[in-house]
């Protein structure tokens, strides 16, 4: 049996990926946003997607959560094909997407935004709310305020909190520090470390490469909708191509 090990899908001791993207191609009209993108995320990992504007980072997250439908390729979460599922079915599987630009429900309170995060889930929310308020105490104070009245940093915390209401196995985080003051960037980074310590797997899109590589275990550098460099975060931080392109070094 051992000689035929190569025929088994997974070798002993090798972790089974939580998420696999295989040759994923996405079009927006006639523009090809992803060109055969392939990557994987292992359970418990924080994986960063790096790259310039229009490289396909957000599109990758949008394809995973079902907001855009790939023209070809496979996206598998725990072995299940996601490419033909709608966003509601995907979020039910435990994939939460915290979108770029936060996209809160502005005319609803903090509490209502969080409750809607648990839309597909039955049962009591007290424990989830307590955990989120412990993670972001300012949200507890502001729970009856309208989301549209919060500061940028508070809105980002709420957006992450709303995604956490899903109790996600995989959290897709799109540009969580964009436009935030330095103190808020530290705050959001701290929250991502806490989530990671709790075992939440994170696929992170982040334009702040230093922040991203400090948080992530591994990273993929995207250019024109495909992966050009991949590796451990420490290695990427030293990689000349990454440094030249994104770190100004």
């Amino acid at each position: 049996m051992m000689e035929h090990g190569a025929l088994r899908p997974v070798q002993d001791g090798e972790p089974v990926p939580l998420l696999t993207l295989q040759g994923v191609t996405v079009y927006y009209g006639r523009v090809r946003a992803l060109q055969g993108l392939t990557l994987e995320v292992l359970p418990g990992e924080v994986v960063a997607l790096l790259g310039g504007n229009g490289a396909g980072k957000s599109t990758t997250l949008r394809a995973v959560s079902g907001l855009v439908r790939p023209a070809s390729g496979h996206i598998r979460f725990r072995g299940q094909e996601l490419t033909r599922l709608d966003p509601a079915a995907i979020v039910r599987l435990g994939v939460a997407h915290c979108p770029e630009g936060r996209k809160l429900f502005p005319e609803m309170t903090v509490l209502e935004n969080l409750e809607l995060g648990a839309y597909v889930r039955a049962g009591r929310l007290d424990e989830d709310l307590r955990q989120i308020f412990d993670l972001f105490p300012v949200l507890r104070e502001r729970r009856h305020q309208l989301a549209g009245s919060l500061s940028g940093g508070e809105q980002q915390m709420l957006a992450i909190g709303r995604a956490l209401m899903v109790r996600p196995t995989l959290l897709l985080l799109d540009e969580p520090t964009m436009g935030l003051a330095p103190a808020m960037v530290v705050e959001v980074a701290r929250a991502i470390r806490v989530l990671r310590a709790r075992g939440t797997t994170v696929l992170l899109v982040e334009q702040n490469v230093q922040v991203a590589l400090r948080l992530a275990d591994r990273g993929y550098v995207l250019e024109n909708g495909r992966v050009v460099v991949e590796g451990r975060a420490e290695a990427l931080a030293r990689d000349d191509r990454v440094r030249r392109a994104y770190l100004g070094g």
Partner: peptide
């Protein structure tokens, strides 16, 4: 869009 993402 966020409504779709929370499963509405």
């Amino acid at each position: 869009e966020a409504a779709r993402l929370v499963g509405i």
